[in-house]
Design a protein around this nucleic acid. Sequence first.
DNA 1: GTAACGTGCAACCACATGGTTGTACGTCAG
DNA 2: CTGACGTACAACCATGTGGTTGCACGTTAC
Lengths: 116, 116
Amino acid sequence: MVVRQLDPAEVDRVFAALADATRRDIVTRVLRREASVSTLARSYEMSFAAVQKHVAVLERAHLVTKQRHGREQVVHPDVATIRAAARLLDHYEELWRGRIDRMSEVLGDTREGDAP
Amino acid sequence: MVVRQLDPAEVDRVFAALADATRRDIVTRVLRREASVSTLARSYEMSFAAVQKHVAVLERAHLVTKQRHGREQVVHPDVATIRAAARLLDHYEELWRGRIDRMSEVLGDTREGDAP
DNA sequence: GTAACGTGCAACCACATGGTTGTACGTCAG
DNA sequence: CTGACGTACAACCATGTGGTTGCACGTTAC
């Protein structure tokens, strides 16, 4: 499967967006079922405007999209971006694996390496 | 394999730490080969103190550890945390998959669902 | 038409972040 | 011993972030 590549500035936005528990909760909620901004807002102990801002941050990071439906704005997840972020972290693990392999090579050690 | 669970506050710190290109570069560098703080500092167009702060942020997020070696402080990666973050994003994808399955069930649609 | 609802946006505030410079201290080389 | 190196830490500044309140505007319900 082809995963869209994110440029560094977009990676910044994605991880920054995920660095807040409320926003992560919004993502998990709309992954289960899309919801309007006001519906989401009722779930949290903060103002509507605050939730609106969180959704805007997620939208700028391309983690969610909004779709107008009458007077409501329905929030949908953008799984491609989540997948791209997951693959980036997987890539870090592969780097680590690569280092283990190089070390094993040097040491003449054929054991399957893993994190210490 | 068992992946250590991160509490929400730690997830905050991990993603916040990864939301900076310099810090991501530091992580990739020490994944390939551990390096002292001063060695890292020479690679970037900023002061030693700035790099030192970036390393401190990564350390607070448990993405790296420091190990004193003489007068040098050697930075090592903490792959367990990277793995935990990757698994968290994988979990989001599974939620999405779960929703697709529920939708398919309701619709009587047996096609393998994927992101639109 | 009117009232309530959902949204967008601006102004404001407290606080964290990313950078700087400067100072101090332990360690290693000569 | 002395000097250079690597580090730690504090003070400072500009900017971004997470929250608030208030207001304006389109949409739906009655």
